[in-house]
């Protein structure tokens, strides 16, 4: 395999470069996916039927905690990639672990939030609005949950194989994914929660 040592490890082979471009295009698909969800959400926003409206069920505290946790995790995955570029495997693994713990924290608070919605009578089966709210949040949450497993597997692989062009490539792509989820969360925070509470 041709390894180009003038490039960062994650870009060092031809296949790695293809993988990264492919993943960027995949993120394009993901943007369309979330755009469809957001559009549907805006259309259903005021179609609450017999169920509650957003302002009646949103709680700022868990949402703020989730936001802080996820934004911080986006910062730490950036540090992890930075450590990887410096070739510091231990630091890289440390920051990756912190990222995953923060992600798990985010997910726990989100599960708490969903239980809260259930208790105040806002379920998938309440109205089109609550259904779409939970589908949009749930899709994001499912992405985070998938990311946790993905990150965990990358963690184990780096532990086993060290920083190779392959594992570096996987880590870098994972970081793109994680940043993307963060950006989506910023949209959710602004246009679902803040807009709903105004």
């Amino acid at each position: 395999m041709n390894v180009n040592s003038t490039q960062p490890l994650e870009y060092s082979t031809e296949q790695n470069r293809l993988n990264i471009l492919g993943f960027w295009i995949f993120l394009g698909c993901e943007i369309m996916l979330f755009a469809t969800l957001f559009t549907s959400y805006f259309i259903y926003e005021n179609r609450t039927g017999s169920g509650p409206a957003g302002a009646e069920i949103f709680e700022i505290t868990p949402v703020l905690i989730e936001t802080i946790l996820l934004l911080t995790s986006s910062f730490t995955i950036g540090l992890a990639v930075n450590a990887m570029r410096l070739g510091r495997t231990k630091a890289m693994l440390g920051f990756l672990a912190v990222t995953l713990v923060l992600g798990a924290g985010f997910l726990s608070v989100e599960i708490y939030e969903f239980i809260h919605y259930y208790h105040v009578g806002a379920t998938l089966q309440t109205s089109a609005f609550t259904g779409m709210l939970l589908t949009t949040l749930g899709t994001h949450g499912a992405h985070v949950a998938f990311g946790l497993f993905w990150g965990l597997f990358i963690f184990l692989q780096i532990k086993k194989q060290g920083l190779t062009p392959q594992t570096a490539n996987k880590s870098f792509i994972f970081s793109l994914y994680w940043h993307f989820l963060d950006v989506m969360w910023i949209f959710i925070f602004s246009f679902i929660y803040l807009k709903g509470m105004m």
Partner: peptide
């Protein structure tokens, strides 16, 4: 996905009641 939810999980996305369209 929304169609599946409507038919199998009881949501109202494409229904004519409870805010569906």
């Amino acid at each position: 996905l929304m169609g599946t939810f409507d038919r199998q999980l009881g949501t109202f996305f494409f229904a004519t009641t409870d805010g569906g369209m």
